[in-house]
């Protein structure tokens, strides 16, 4: 009798493990590393893309709204792929999209924007790539979500997808 209870308990325990593992298999295990979360944005001075005037981080991140900082480059193929998603995101009034043009030729970058449209409310130039490093980027493209307190709350490595853009929208709500 005692044995039977023990056996049933053990079997139900393993059945539970089975279900968990089975479900776990179908879960995707690709996710962005949770680094840089709640980190303050760096303080920097850089050039504006269009006017080529010097701008500082204090002037840029002034408003009381969410910012999305997107690191892009005209030579970066995945950037082209994520561009329509950025265009779509830019329609959202509560977000300010800021582009960081990473180690690019200015002419090529201009062409890129002219051809595909400009989703950004402001574009900054990162000529030698140091600014991206200060933000903690690994490469292009990369997208940082910055909240009202000027803290990085999320970072996406690689091109944005429709799923991720939905995630961004829900984050900002």
């Amino acid at each position: 009798m005692k044995n039977k209870i023990l056996l049933t308990t053990i079997i139900s325990f393993f059945a539970f493990c089975f279900i968990i593992f089975y479900k776990g298999l179908n879960n995707s295990n690709i996710y962005s590393p949770e680094k840089n979360i709640k980190k303050n944005i760096p303080i920097f001075i850089t050039k504006d893309f269009f006017s080529e005037n010097e701008v500082s981080s204090k002037e840029i991140f002034t408003g009381n709204n969410f910012y999305i900082l997107n690191i892009w480059s005209s030579w970066c193929v995945p950037c082209k792929k994520e561009h329509p998603i950025l265009m779509e995101l830019s329609k959202n009034k509560s977000i300010k999209l800021i582009g960081l043009n990473y180690r690019d030729n200015l002419n090529n970058a201009q062409k890129f924007i002219n051809e595909l449209g400009n989703p950004y409310s402001q574009i900054l130039i990162d000529e030698d790539g140091t600014l991206a490093v200060e933000f903690g980027a690994y490469g292009v493209p990369e997208t940082f979500i910055i909240d009202k307190n000027k803290k990085i709350i999320k970072k996406f490595i690689g091109p944005l997808t429709l799923d991720l853009s939905k995630k961004i929208k829900s984050l900002i709500k």
Binding site: N3, L6, L7, I10, I11, F14, F18, F21, Y22, L25, N26
Partner: peptide
């Protein structure tokens, strides 16, 4: 490859069940 995973998983639990039954 989830298909492989499911196969090993089922096989693994069959072995667990078999050994538990024999033991008890």
């Amino acid at each position: 490859d989830p298909e492989r995973g499911i196969f090993i998983l089922i096989f693994l639990f069959i072995l667990i069940l078999l050994s538990l039954l024999i033991f008890f």
